[in-house]
């Protein structure tokens, strides 16, 4: 349901903590901001890593069970030690070569654009994460916090 004031809103759930899956919510939210939409992202389960100070710049690409990698790696090779680091290194080199924005930059755009960035309380309890471990400008909330926000959203996606 659209809001009464006519401003559009996007509500996203970021549930994955890999480098590749951190991009869609941040690109969508920052693009929404460029269109003067309201944007909110609920970071839950492994998605919480995207807003962890210690993890944000060290998210990885899985080398296992990922047949869509541009250079296909058989699972038996992907399981070897160091393959995750290698897949991550390759992805980071492509990101650099294609001049794609970095995750910290995109997160900055979201924050400066007034996006609501909500860390999932339940996940934090479950995984023993403290609020101090999260980057600045994050609010901690629960499922109802997100649902209330999403109930007035025009676009709502689970990523």
């Amino acid at each position: 349901m659209s809001k009464a004031n006519g401003v559009k809103r996007v509500a996203l759930i970021a549930s994955k903590g890999t480098l590749d899956m951190a991009y869609p919510p941040l690109i969508l939210a920052s693009t929404a901001i460029s269109m003067d939409w309201e944007a909110g992202i609920f970071f839950t389960f492994y998605g919480l890593d995207i807003i962890k100070k210690a993890k944000l710049e060290h998210l990885k690409v899985p080398s296992l069970a990922n047949p869509a990698m541009p250079v296909p790696v058989p699972n038996i090779i992907g399981a070897l030690p160091g393959m995750t680091a290698m897949a991550t290194m390759m992805m980071k080199s492509w990101i650099k070569k294609a001049h794609v924005a970095t995750l910290p930059d995109l997160l900055d755009v979201c924050r400066e654009g007034g996006a609501r960035l909500i860390g999932c309380q339940m996940t934090m309890d479950l995984m023993g994460v403290k609020k101090e471990e999260l980057v600045d400008g994050i609010e901690v909330g629960g499922a109802a916090t997100f649902l209330e926000y999403a109930s007035e959203a025009d676009v709502s996606l689970f990523i």
Partner: peptide, 11 residues
């Protein structure tokens, strides 16, 4: 500039 900076610039 990469996406979404050109859009932010236009905005």
């Amino acid at each position: 500039m990469p996406m979404p900076y050109p859009l932010l610039g236009a905005r």
